[in-house]
Design a protein around this nucleic acid. Structure first.
Lengths: 339, 339
DNA sequence: GATGCTGACTGAACCGGATAAGCTGAGCCA
DNA sequence: TGGCTCAGCTTATCCGGTTCAGTCAGCATC
């Protein structure tokens, strides 16, 4: 099937290529009658303008890029990314932008991809995930002058546009909730320490610990995998003064933690309360269903995409705040059983 | 930062655009000395050829498309897709192809996306997921003459290229394994019935049921969500003659089923053996870890991408078989406790 | 010394759109 | 009737690559 070009439409309509272009793009320069005729012919022969030709003359790719810096085999376990992508995608496709995806091994490879994408004019802008402290990608993107929105922060995003949510407030709310239930020995199983949002949560945890005088509150480090999350839980629950509540930095570790607790003969929430960050269907999959800190992740992705398109369009690179994660109490939290 | 074009390279090297093009693409027509000089200049000023310009003259997009037909909020729960995508991506980026992703609501929207992508010359080919019985997308793609590889089958892929794995053999192996452990009352919680691979597994289950005379073997229908999987399990375990082993069509339903069993006071694997299709880190997250039918999904995606690129390059649209899923016994299967 | 050949390169056309500039004829007015 | 305006087109140019047809110097050949 030969794919028609603008010249085919022009020929059948008996007008020039220019007239067709004006007609299809809603520009003045053709009469309404001619426009309708051209539109009808374009529809009839199934014409879509070549994205390459359009990109070439418009000097815009009509696509935005997302590089994911995660090992292939663990990328899929957290539902977060796919939900984010679907939100991004919904917003983009509504505005006829394409999403170009690439999985990269590390930040150097990611920066190389940005450089290539920008040089090849393959994307008009990028979304940056998993912000680290002292993230090398920030200065690299600033130097390239590649429009970007960093999903993360606040702080550490340089002059780039960003979208952040108030994780500190969410963590504070969660600790206050657990304290209100009567918990004092609260542990937090944190994700990778060099991620910016882990750092923010850690700082917030330290602050509320001090404010409420929770001297027994501890943070232990993990890496977002279920394996490590389970191991950290086992250590916590084996200690002499084991915590009565644990906050996990993601859903996968929380589920692993729940399994470990049950395996060790503890009941949840009787002996141990569990809170998961990142509410997802996984949290409702297990028994008891997990109390979780959630937010609308597809909406978050859509918000990020909207912001990026605004930046691409030349609007100032602002720092936009998204919804604060909110606590959804379910069956995994309760007052501690007095012993 | 002004992005350099081939004309900039040509000017600095004191040659014509054509010479630069020959030099960069390893074509004859320039001396080795000149080629090296041009290459050095290109590297120095950070030149990457515009993908749009290249696409325009080569009449190839340098990208392949993947449309995902799933609701945004459930897309991420199964690790399968992200693992598949990362495998696809690894293969593509190694060959300098881009991956364009779009989330669509239904098959009509998906077909419209294919039509647009192909008309816009945005992709050179597509990967098709979640093959249904009597899938409308197949004739639509054949009619468009858009190069495609269907991930699924065997059967129902028309004249299109496809990549399939022998789910029937895998299911048979699993049932034989359970029977060898001593199980007779084996249930299967199936996924959406109009998916081709569900149908294949259902047929295989019926065949082995007949062959081994497992008159008590039943299939119940679900939809791959944890919620439905849990509900199906609850029904099965409440029946008078409850099964001693359940095979789930995906990992998410299996985990939900495990939770339901434990909630109902049954021990796994003592009272109930569980097998999950699609091994994933989720299966090792829970206690006991789930016996699962697994395969290397990133490799599957990479294989599909390779096959598609071959089809795009004009090779015949063959039906290629991938690795058969293999059973990994873990803690969720054991001989039935005699009662 | 005319001829042919080859290697190294140039110039121009082309891909399929967008768009600025130029042209044409109808309508209006003095 | 000539001049002016303006809607409604056409023409030409550009975007940044690839590629084909030449050009031309240098060399071997008879």
């Amino acid at each position: 099937m030969k794919r028609p070009t603008i010249a085919d439409v022009a020929q059948r309509a008996g007008v020039s290529k220019g007239a067709v272009s004006y007609a299809l793009n809603g520009q003045p320069g053709v009469s309404e009658a001619t426009r309708q005729r051209i539109l009808a012919i374009a529809t009839e022969i199934g014409f879509s303008p070549s994205s390459a030709a359009r990109a070439l003359s418009a000097a815009a790719a009509g696509a935005i890029g997302l590089a994911l810096c995660r090992p292939a085999r663990t990328l899929g376990v957290e539902p977060f990314f796919m939900a984010l992508i679907s939100g991004v995608e919904a917003e983009l496709s509504a505005r006829s932008y394409a999403l170009t995806l690439q999985v990269v091994a590390d930040h150097d490879a990611e920066i190389a991809v940005y450089r290539r994408w920008w040089g090849e004019r393959r994307v008009d802008g990028v979304l940056v995930c998993d912000l680290r402290t002292d993230d090398r990608r920030i200065p690299a993107l600033e130097h390239l002058q590649l429009p970007a929105v960093v999903i993360g922060g606040p702080g550490g995003t340089g002059e780039l546009a960003s979208l952040w949510s108030d994780d500190a407030a969410a963590l504070t709310e969660t600790v206050e909730y657990l304290v209100a239930l009567g918990h004092r020995r609260i542990a937090r199983v944190a994700g990778l320490p060099d991620l910016r949002h882990t750092e923010i949560r850690t700082d917030a945890f330290a602050a509320i610990r001090q404010r409420l005088g929770l001297v027994e509150a501890v943070t232990v480090w993990s890496d977002y995998t279920g394996e490590e999350g389970g191991r950290a839980t086992r250590r916590l629950l084996s200690s002499a003064e084991r915590p009565t509540a644990v906050i996990y930095d993601n859903d996968v570790m929380a589920i692993a933690g729940l399994s470990v607790a049950q395996e060790m003969g503890l009941t949840v929430p009787g002996d141990l309360s569990i809170v998961a960050w990142d509410d997802s269907p996984l949290c409702r999959l297990v028994h008891p269903p997990l109390t979780a800190l959630g937010r609308d992740i597809p909406a978050y992705g859509a918000h990020a995409a909207r912001h990026l398109l605004a930046v691409v369009a030349g609007q100032p690179a602002g720092r936009v705040q998204d919804e604060t994660p909110h606590l959804t109490p379910r069956g995994s939290t309760a007052p501690p059983r007095s012993r």
